[in-house]
Simulated assay, not measured.
Amino acid sequence: MVIIGLGIFAYSLRNVALTQLLHDLLHINGWWLLIAIACMVGYLLIESRIVQVFVNDRISGFTFKDAVRIPLIEQLFNGITPFSSGGQPAQLVAMIQTGVDGGRASSVLLMKFVVYQAMIVINFLIALAIGFQYLAAKLHYLALFVVFGFLIHLVVILGLLMIMFWHSFTKRMVNLLMKPMRWFVKPERYEEWRVSLDEKIDSFYLESVRIKSQWRLMVHVALLTLAQLAVYYLIPYFIMLSLGYNHVNVLMVTALHVLIVMVISLFPIPGGAGGAEFSFEALFASYVTSRSKLVLAMILWRVITYYLGMFSGMWAMALKPDKVTEEPVKRHRFLNRSKDKQ
């Protein structure tokens, strides 16, 4: 991915004078750039806190050091797998390494995912109201990608909400949708998939029943997630300030970044390589009129939001985790009561 990224950067620089690029780089405002980097660090630290809040609700002894490893490892595996598909399994393995039971770790990651998806949808609706008209006027073809990306995220969150509130109906619907799979796989394999999916739906439902009774915890995590996303979405704004563009509209720039992130999620190439860089340049070309500064802004944004997380994840992989020492009690009791009610 580093080699691919360097190739994309080189292609973007093909019409840029290196002397001008070097001049822009030397005259960058380092303080604003440090704030942009701090936003990315804050994004990761807030997610670490979210992980710790969820885990400590179930077991004690999970340190902040262990919590920090989780989002860093997620960044690494999201960055090197198509559609960011490797982040969740990697987080699960990292939590098991700390001594957290696999089932509890899965529940934590699932609930974190639900809250994160819900907050992404809320942020996107706000960004859509602010920036979609600009996007449709300037780049109508990207507008279609944005809408399609939003629909995918919306379907995901609606599916999760259906499991939470219409558990039996959702199971029947999923089993109905799975039936055509019998035409392509062996009966044994089909049955194995069906049972596994039913177990996952049941597990998520039990966890959702538990979590719905803890509204204070969910509000706390939702607010943390909103803060996490806010500092992340502000990164391009501070990069522009570092390049001397002091009169840009912070709301519009932030909204456009939200839309870019939505577009990136559609590209199957790890990290949305190529699509991310193109989308950034296309959307911010009206704000950054200098070609060399536009490419520099794109490179800085990509290094901060993508490569910084990847290399931090490599460091986290080498970091030896602490071990959880205490076993949970309340969760077992709750699940037993939930099963009795069913």
Rank of each mutant, 00 (worst) to 15 (best):
G30M: 09
G5I: 14
F132G: 04
V174F: 13
Y134H: 15
S106D: 00
G87M: 00
T325I: 13
A282E: 10
T289N: 08
A227L: 14
W166E: 08
S265G: 09
P187M: 10
L154E: 09
L176C: 11
F83T: 11
I260T: 05
Q228E: 08
I37P: 04
F280Y: 15
F150G: 07
M1C: 00
R291L: 15
V155G: 12
Y232T: 07
E326P: 05
V156R: 12
A273C: 02
V146H: 06
L135M: 13
R104A: 00
G244M: 07
F238W: 14
N56C: 13
A94P: 01
F150N: 03
L109H: 02
I46G: 00
H27M: 13
A90E: 00
L161Q: 06
I120L: 14
K200H: 09
L161W: 13
Y307F: 10
V146D: 06
S84W: 04
F150L: 13
L34N: 04
I59L: 11
S286E: 11
Q133L: 15
F124I: 07
L128A: 07
F62N: 05
A17Q: 15
L296S: 03
A90V: 05
L259G: 02
R58Q: 04
P82Y: 12
V258L: 04
W315A: 11
G42F: 11
K138T: 12
G271P: 05
S85P: 07
Y245L: 13
M111W: 14
M40G: 07
V258H: 01
Y287P: 02
P268T: 15
I46T: 13
V108C: 01
L197F: 14
I37D: 00
L135A: 14
V303F: 14
S279Y: 08
M1P: 02
I50M: 12
M298L: 09
L197W: 10
G7L: 12
I4R: 03
G131V: 05
M173W: 14
V100P: 00
N246T: 14
I122A: 06
N249C: 08
R291C: 06
N336V: 10
N15H: 12
F64R: 01
T170D: 10
M164P: 00
L26G: 07
L251R: 06
F148N: 03
N56D: 06
F334T: 13
G30V: 04
F83N: 03
S279E: 01
S12K: 05
V115E: 02
T81Q: 06
F113V: 05
Y190E: 02
P71H: 03
Y306P: 01
R58V: 14
L45H: 05
L34I: 07
K65E: 03
L110A: 11
S107D: 07
A222W: 05
L6Y: 12
M111V: 10
G244A: 04
V68P: 01
V303H: 03
S213L: 10
L229M: 05
L125H: 02
F280T: 05
Q117M: 06
H167V: 08
Y232D: 02
A90F: 02
S107C: 04
L109G: 03
K65H: 07
A10I: 04
H247N: 11
L226A: 12
L154F: 14
K341Q: 08
S265R: 06
K186L: 10
E47G: 00
P71E: 01
I126A: 08
K339N: 10
S60P: 08
L154T: 11
A10L: 10
F62I: 11
A10F: 10
